[in-house]
Design a protein around this nucleic acid. Structure first.
Lengths: 148, 148
DNA sequence: CTCAGTATGTCAGAATATTGACATGAGTCA
DNA sequence: TGACTCATGTCAATATTCTGACATACTGAG
């Protein structure tokens, strides 16, 4: 009955559980980032930029799961705060590569450590092999969802 | 190095992967709900109300992971559309129990079937036992995150 | 080469959600 | 009883994001 039914069972729904964990993770991240004066998107952008230097606005938007318009306003703020720099001449097409400044890297360092603390707490009850299994299953879900 | 480091590795970060799946799920749900004229929050509220009749505004807000203010404006819209009814006299305290109308149940029926299709697609590559394992691990993550 | 298709940056308006605030009702405890 | 705490409903203001739109730049088929 929980499987063949035509509806959703909240108690056993993977989608609902996913949203629950995702929401709790976001809340926990906000809690540790707020004292640093950063939002989750703010941090995500910096983190992405640190690991993939030179990403354009649109690429950053895709990597942080927001629209490029939203990323654009964020990037303007980050640039105004001296945390990132944007090329004026596009390297190719219209895309303007973005890079962290020293100040951006410094701010990210403390934030990244704080976020790692949250993530470690999240998976504190999972063994390394369980974490691998979880990763594999979540990846499978992502692939399946993308296959329209 | 991927474990003892002080930072986050995007490639192996469970948090990032969680956000990725969650975002893909939301996008897929929006895609099937849009033709029905419903948003994800709209659907979530109806679904929650179907399975837990009499929930108050604040309880619905917690169950759908939004603020009670946001749920309040949504409930006013749903009530205006004749999909839900709210008691005028609080049963206890200030909480006003909310219930689905027949129209609400009817609208939910098609939406719930559509969302179940999305959820089934998401877990199409997972065996029943894997789904159980995934549920257990996600629950563990939620519990750990809530333990501040 | 030309043109259709796709991707990007950016502006403006609209929708949505959040924070802040206040009054009300219930429970607790001295 | 009275003071205190907590949860709720609701109003207002703010913030954030999205949708729509447009011009520009590359790419590939013809």
């Amino acid at each position: 009955m929980s499987q063949g039914a035509s509806g959703i069972e909240l108690e056993t729904s993977l989608g609902y559980l996913l949203k629950e964990v995702s929401s709790a993770l976001r809340t926990a991240m906000e809690a540790v980032l707020r004292p640093l004066g950063m939002s989750v998107t703010h941090y995500s952008c910096l983190e992405l930029l640190a690991q993939r230097p030179g990403l354009s606005n649109s690429e950053l938007a895709r990597g942080t799961f927001v629209t490029r318009q939203a990323m654009n306003v964020l990037l303007q703020a980050l640039e105004g705060d001296g945390l990132v720099t944007r090329s004026q001449q596009p390297a190719s097409g219209r895309a303007l590569p973005t890079r962290l400044t020293a100040a951006g890297r410094a701010q990210l360092a403390t934030a990244s450590a704080a976020v790692k603390g949250v993530e470690d707490r999240m998976k504190s009850q999972l063994s390394p092999s369980e974490q691998d299994a979880l990763r594999a299953m979540l990846s499978a879900c992502a692939v399946s969802l993308r296959a329209s």
